[in-house]
Amino acid sequence: MIDKARLAALFRAPAADSCPCVIRAVDVKKVYRMGGTETHALRGASLDVHRGEYLSLMGPSGSGKTTLFNAIGGLSKPTSGKVYIDQVDVAQLDQVELAWLRCRKIGYIFQSYHLIRVMTCLENVTLSMSFAGMESDEAREKGIFLLKLVGLGERVLHKPGELSGGQQQRVAIARALANSPDIVLADEPTANLDSVTGAEIIELLARLRDELGVTIITATHDLKMLKRSDRVCWMDDGRIEKIAPPSEINFQTDEFDEH
C-alpha cells in the first residue's frame, strides 16, 4: 500500500539542529476559479515555522489565513509554490502519503470543533489512533490519558452534544494530540467560545506546547491568543505583511479595532 522505503526516505529523522524549521512555505500561491472569475486567495506567501513554536496567523477575513492554513496542513494543494513539512515537499505526496501525514504528523483543531457527533469523546479521540494501527486497548488508555490531560477525565463516555462548547474544543484538542503529532494546526479555536472559555483553551494550548513541545500554528482574531504566541504573522490580501513577536506589534492600531 505504502512504499515504506520511500516514506522512510521522505521522513528521515529530521535532525533538530540542522534545520529548526518544521514547516517552510515558499512563495505559496492559490487561485480559486469559480465560473469565469479568478480569486487570488494567496499571492505568494513565504513562511518558516520553527520547531516548538507557537505561531499565530492573523488578518482580516478574506486575507488568506485559512487558505495558507490548509496549504500548510496538507488539506489542499497550492496552485504554485512549495510547502515543506519536515523538509518534505507536500506536493510530492500521493493520497495515501498525505493521509499518513495528516494522521501522524499533524493534529487539527477547528473553529466549530468538528467532532463526530455519533461517537463518544473517547471514540472521537481514538479514531485516528485506530487509523494509525494502534491496538484498541492501548488506544483507549491513551485516549483516556489525553482527555484527562485536557481536563475531561469525567466526560470520557459522553457524546459531544452533551458537552459545552469549551469542553467540545477540549475534546478536539485531545483528538489532535492522538497520534503525538509534531504540529498542531488550530483554525480560530476560540472564535465560537466566550472569552473566559477561550482564555482557558489558549492556556491549554500554551501548556501543551511547553510540556509536549509540539509546534502550534493558529489562525485567529483573538487578541489574547496573539499576545500569548511567540510570533504573529499578519496577513492581508493574500500576502504576509509582517512577522514579528507580539511585543513588537501595536495592537491598538486601526486594523485591530474591527476585530
Partner: peptide, 16 residues
C-alpha cells in the same frame, strides 16, 4: 520506527 500502515479495522468501521 516509522509505522507506515494506515488502516481501518473492520470492527471500527462497523461501529461507526
Amino acid at each position: 520506527s516509522i509505522q507506515t500502515q494506515i488502516r481501518l479495522p473492520l470492527a471500527v468501521a462497523f461501529k461507526v
